[in-house]
Write a protein that binds this DNA or RNA. Structure first.
Lengths: 334, 334
DNA sequence: CTGAAAGCGCTTACAG
DNA sequence: CTGAAAGCGCTTACAG
């Protein structure tokens, strides 16, 4: 990377040992006298020795790189993607891995496939929102370690880590009931997405538990975009609802903005709950939302990937998500 | 990456040529008979040959990896960072480079330094918002190609690409004057940030051009966060302003939300303009804002980095930014 | 136009 | 505990 970088050989020469010993000392491998190890490390530090990752990769087969696959537009438009990538990046760094960002950017599938193969990463952490599912499965079948973040479609048989959606959605819906809402609508994500489906199911279950009838017309299907939230407003007003459970914050914010724009009081006339808990939820009116444990998800995903690299077969994990009450749902009791 | 990947040697054997020839054919280097080149490429395709990046790196000294350095919290909280990273990632991919994401995450500087050195990337694209400035300069001095995105502090003598701030800010301020605003406040970013300073200077210049006096109390210093926008509301109301030019969308949105929350009409009583043009600006009330040319910035940054790799010394670039009028500023003329 | 050979900077059995 | 040596998969002068 610089003019003439210091190599392991340089380090070994200065220390008067073989590069084999220097390598073992640096990497904490057994079979080096403690005082030698100490000296090598000190010298390495002082002459600024930095191992060449590619050489390590070539020699050991491990690149210490994790590929992260997300839909490109997601990063640009959905704070969820940014938060998730941030969390994965931190967790990876903490575990000694670099993060290779793969944005799909609507590239033809073959290119995505080639890109992922070429990347030379030890494994992939893939967003359940990524479009390359079938290519990912092919890579996994070819031996590439893969962990999903978010729940992938049922036909994808790969480990994943996601936040609780079903019970969190029950909780969110019940919260609106508790606030006195009687006619609650559900603004869902695409229902072929398992996480979106779970949130919808939770909405239904909450009604069942409360002994309330469910009117199918109260289910509005969106696509996780703010625009979908805005677009749903008209329908919601026509339905005469007094509460809305949205499948993510972006749609929830769209609904709130659209309602306020029309002079409808939130939460006075219509209460709104979102899902994600990204920073965008934090400014006025603060969204009531279900906060995903981003950092925990990132850490578990990285840990699971490392487990796979170590030959284990980790199971999927569903992490708890917390309802955080903000301004958009709390109203005076009737 | 998979069980026993096909190597250049495999490819060469199948084609009945040496690996040297196979290498040249694959990489489009001169000195290969057209029909041979064609055949090698076809076979490579059919047997699914994918060159090993690390081996290429080791042999050629080029890793085809670009390191992207951003403050970690920025990615999670500011859509600007997400949009910029997305744009850089796309541009890099288009140019055949992978993207290594380096999030500072408040790591101690030595670690950042080591991380960047270890990364093995061919060069770095660094956000002007990154905290590692002095380490970056040290790396650059050591021969690492660096291009900044956003204008770095004046003591950083490295090429950058940024969007027009000064004239865009003049334009934004004049737009408020045209809407009938008479007392316009400026909600700035940290004034030691050149881009923030330029936006502030543009605000001042617009007043000078209009022959209006400037009242220093109309300048409120923020920190680019939505919270700063919300926090500024009280002060803005006390000042009795009828217009606000914010240094980014996050603060502008904070201001708008805070004002609406207090029942102040936007833009009726107070008009607001932001800066960035991220997707967050697009839902109601749609922010009037200055749209940064993210994709162009990403493309230029990547192109400049490649130029440096080719031994050139590209100059910095300032790209045009466009005022996009939304809902938060247009009001009936007096 | 083509190939044999050296070399990039590491790691890792294999001997000792 | 330590070292000499082979090898990871490419690229690139150097000959021909």
């Amino acid at each position: 990377m610089t003019d003439r970088p210091t190599t392991l050989a340089d380090l070994a020469r200065v220390c008067g040992v073989s590069s084999a010993t220097a390598s073992r000392a640096i990497n904490g491998k057994p079979g080096v006298r403690p005082e030698v190890r100490e000296r090598v490390r000190r010298v390495a530090e002082s002459i600024g020795f930095v191992p060449n990752r590619s050489a390590q990769h070539l020699a050991s087969g491990r690149s210490s790189l994790i590929g992260v696959v997300f839909p490109s537009d997601g990063l640009r438009s959905d704070p969820y993607a940014a938060a998730m990538i941030d969390a994965i990046g931190r967790a990876a760094a903490k575990a000694g891995f670099g993060t290779l960002l793969h944005l799909e950017a609507g590239a033809p599938p073959e290119q995505v496939f080639a890109m992922l193969q070429r990347s030379g990463s030890d494994g992939l952490i893939v967003s359940a929102l990524a479009a390359s599912a079938m290519w990912i499965s092919e890579l996994a079948a070819a031996g590439v370690p893969v962990v999903y973040v978010g729940r992938p479609s049922p036909d994808v048989d790969l480990p994943f880590v996601t936040a609780e959606s079903f019970s969190a959605s029950i909780r969110a819906t019940e919260h609106l009931f508790e606030q006195g809402c009687r006619t609650v609508a559900c603004l869902t994500g695409p229902l072929d997405r398992p996480d979106a489906r779970d949130r919808y199911d939770g909405f239904v279950e909450a009604h069942r538990l409360a002994g309330l009838p469910i009117d199918d017309s109260l289910v509005v299907v969106g696509d996780f975009t703010a625009a979908a939230g805005v677009a749903a407003v008209e329908e919601l007003l026509r339905l005469g609802v007094d509460g809305v459970v949205a499948a993510n914050d972006l749609m929830a914010r769209g609904v709130v903005s659209g309602l306020v724009q029309r002079g409808v009081a939130v939460p006075g006339e219509i209460a709104v709950v979102g899902y994600d808990g990204t920073v965008g939820a934090e400014f006025p009116p603060v969204l009531t939302t279900v906060r995903q444990p981003f950092d925990a998800i990132g850490e578990r995903a990285v840990a699971m990937l490392i487990a796979i690299l170590d030959g284990e077969a980790p199971g999927s994990e569903v992490l708890a998500a917390e309802l955080v009450v903000g301004d958009t749902s709390v109203r005076a009791r009737r």
